[in-house]
Design a protein around this nucleic acid. Sequence first.
DNA 1: TATCACTGACTAACGGGTTAGTCAATTCAG
DNA 2: CTGAATTGACTAACCCGTTAGTCAGTGATA
Lengths: 209, 209
Amino acid sequence: MKKTEKRTSRAEQKARRPQEILEAAFEEFTVKGYAATRVEDVAARLGVTKGTIYLYFPTKEVLFEEMFRHMSTPFKDVLDSVGGFKGTCADRLRTLLLLAYEKIPNDRKTRELLRLTLSDGTRFPDIVDRHFDEFIAPLVAAVRALVDEGVSAGEFRRGAAANYPDVVASSILHVAVWRLMFADRRSIDGPAFMEAHYDLALNGLLQRS
Amino acid sequence: MKKTEKRTSRAEQKARRPQEILEAAFEEFTVKGYAATRVEDVAARLGVTKGTIYLYFPTKEVLFEEMFRHMSTPFKDVLDSVGGFKGTCADRLRTLLLLAYEKIPNDRKTRELLRLTLSDGTRFPDIVDRHFDEFIAPLVAAVRALVDEGVSAGEFRRGAAANYPDVVASSILHVAVWRLMFADRRSIDGPAFMEAHYDLALNGLLQRS
DNA sequence: TATCACTGACTAACGGGTTAGTCAATTCAG
DNA sequence: CTGAATTGACTAACCCGTTAGTCAGTGATA
C-alpha cells in the first residue's frame, strides 16, 4: 500500500510513524469529533491500515489523548516574554493582544483543540485541565500582571474591569468561536476586530483624566 | 413498564410524548454529543423503549434536529424591547448586557445549544444557521443600534470599537464557554464578571472629554 | 353499572450494517 | 535469508431502525 520510497529507510519510517499518526488523528478527530471518527479513517489518511495504528497506540482513547497532548504547543513562554518588554502599559497591552490573537483564534491547532475540549471534554476530563493550564491560566495571569502594573503606575483606572482581568482579553474567544462555527461560510475581519478590541479595552482601562 | 397512573389518559399521554422525548433527547445529546448518544438512552430516560421513540420520530437525525428547534427559545423579541426603553445610552447598554447574560451564559438551554452547535455543526449545517439567526445576529444588531445612537447623540466616541460592535458584547461568550468547559469544577462569578464587562465597555465607549 | 370487543401505544427481539481491536500471513529492507 | 513492519481478514460487540405481538384503556351495548 505504502509505496517504497528510496529516501526513507525502515528505521526512519518507524521513528516518524508516531508523529505522523498523531497528526493524522488530529485532522480526523477535529473534523468529526471523538465518537464519529473511525481508527480506519486515521490510518487511511496515512495510506496504511488500521493494524498499523494499533502497533503504536493500544486503544483509540489513548490515541486521542496523546494526540491532544502532542498538539498543545507552548503558549506560556511566549506570554512571559511580554513581561520583559519596555514601553507604556498601553503598548504592552497591544503586544499582548497581538500575541494572544496569533495563538488562539488565528492558529488552527489551538482553535480546533478548543472545539475538542468543548465537545469531548465531558468524556476526557484531562484535556479540560490541560486546556486550562496551557491557554487560559497563562493568558489571564499575563493580563492581570499588566493591568495591575498599569494601575500601580497610575496609567490605568482602578475599577471593576481592573479587578476581573479576564474581561479584558475575553473578546479573543469571540473570533475563535466564530471561526469554529462558520469556517469559511461567514468571514470575520481578524485585524479589524482586534483593532476594535484594543481600542475599546484601552479606552476602558485608561485614566479618564 | 410504564405503570398505569389514573390521572393520565391515553390521549393525554400521547399528546405529551413528543415534548417529553425532545426534552429527554436534549439531556442526552448535550452530555454525549450526537454520535455518542444512543436512541435507547433517550428512551431509557423516559422509562420507555427505543421503539416508542421511532413511533414519533423517523430517524435519529430528525430527532436531533427537532430537539434543537424545540429548545431554541426566542431571544430577538426580548432584545427588541430594549429599543423602546428610555434613559441614557449607558443605561440602556447596561440593560442590554443584563438581558444578554441572562439569555446566553446563564440559561442552561442556550449554553448547551452553543456546545452542540460547535461540536456537531459540521454535520448539521442547519443548526449553525439557526444559531446565527436566533442568537448572534439579533444581539449584534441590538448592540450596533445602541452604539450608533450613542455616537449620534454625542454620548459615545467614534472609533474602531463603535464600528465593530461585536466586540462590545463578545465577553458574554467567555462566561458561556467557561461554564461549558468547567461546569462546577471551576466557578465563575457571573455578576462580578458582568460588572467588570459593563465597566470596561462603557468607559471604552464614553466620550473622554 | 357490568361486560366485552376493539384500538393503538408500547414492547421485545431481531436483521443488517458498522467498528474497535486481534492475529496469522505477507512483504521487504538489511 | 531473516526478522521486523505491515497487512487485512476476522471476531465480538454495538447500535440503528423494523415489526409481530401484547395488553391497558376505551367506549358501545345491554
